[in-house]
């Protein structure tokens, strides 16, 4: 594991920026709590994934270039999302293959780390739970699970919390059906998938749904809300920060 750095870059992601800034701030608070300085480049925007997955690689590259520029130094780039993290870490080298920025993209990708993995493996964070007993369930985003492979780290954070009971979903490894533009272009399919996910969540008896990805949370949370469920969906960073901050 890399040695404990003095400073890290924080890549907030566009969705957190626009809709869930409190989740982004919670991640920052957790990093600062461990004595790490968090740098937040104001020039950052989106990782480029929406265009990359929709058939517009040129547009994705233009936006990705902006991120390469915004994070010029070799500090770790911490990302509170498996999906955006996967784009930055695993797809930038492909996006910039045969491009002049290839080496720069490789440099950048090598620095990317998902937030919970960083907290657990690099900072070896120790959490003290100050919250009331609660039962939660966990949704693994596909990128966190299969590209970033960080689910064990995310769950290990929850398991550190004494008063938190984690009830696993029956189909934890199955996609919620978000898939970016898939959710509107294949709306029926996406709806069928998220309905099954909601049913699975309801069955756990948990009073909160946690995940490390705001895309899935927006999708599942929106479906929970639509079905008048009382289970809120929350980003793990925000939840953990609440529990330890008291």
């Amino acid at each position: 594991m890399p040695t404990r750095p003095q400073k890290v870059y924080y890549f907030g992601t566009c969705l957190i920026d626009l809709c869930y800034p409190q989740a982004g701030m919670a991640g920052i608070e957790l990093l600062q709590r461990e004595g790490v300085e968090v740098l937040f480049p104001q020039q950052q925007s989106c990782c480029g994934q929406p265009a990359y997955n929709s058939g517009f690689p040129e547009e994705a590259r233009k936006v990705a270039r902006q991120q390469l520029k915004a994070f010029p130094n070799d500090y770790p780039i911490v990302v509170p999302s498996g999906s955006c993290g996967g784009m930055l870490k695993h797809h930038y080298p492909k996006l910039f293959a045969n491009q002049p920025e290839f080496a720069e993209a490789q440099r950048f990708s090598g620095q990317v780390m998902e937030l919970t993995e960083f907290l657990v493996t690099v900072l070896e964070i120790q959490l003290e739970d100050r919250g009331q007993p609660i039962k939660v369930t966990w949704h693994s985003s596909c990128s966190a699970l299969r590209e970033m492979r960080v689910i064990d780290y995310s769950k290990s954070l929850l398991r550190q919390l004494r008063n938190v009971e984690l009830v696993e979903l029956r189909r934890e490894r199955e996609c919620c059906g978000f898939g970016g533009s898939f959710s509107v272009k294949q709306a029926d399919l996406s709806s069928a998938m998220v309905s099954d996910k909601v049913a699975d969540i309801e069955k756990t008896g948990a009073s909160r749904l946690l995940s490390g990805d705001c895309g899935c949370l927006m999708h599942i949370g929106g479906a929970l809300d639509y079905q008048k469920s009382l289970i809120p969906a929350q980003h793990i960073a925000e939840f953990v920060w609440e529990r330890v901050h008291g």
Partner: peptide
Amino acid sequence: SRTLPKFAARSLHALAKEKGLRDE
């Protein structure tokens, strides 16, 4: 099948700036 998310009054960019996070 899903309700729409709300956009935050202040973005993470704005909150980070308020908190005085630097850039390098």
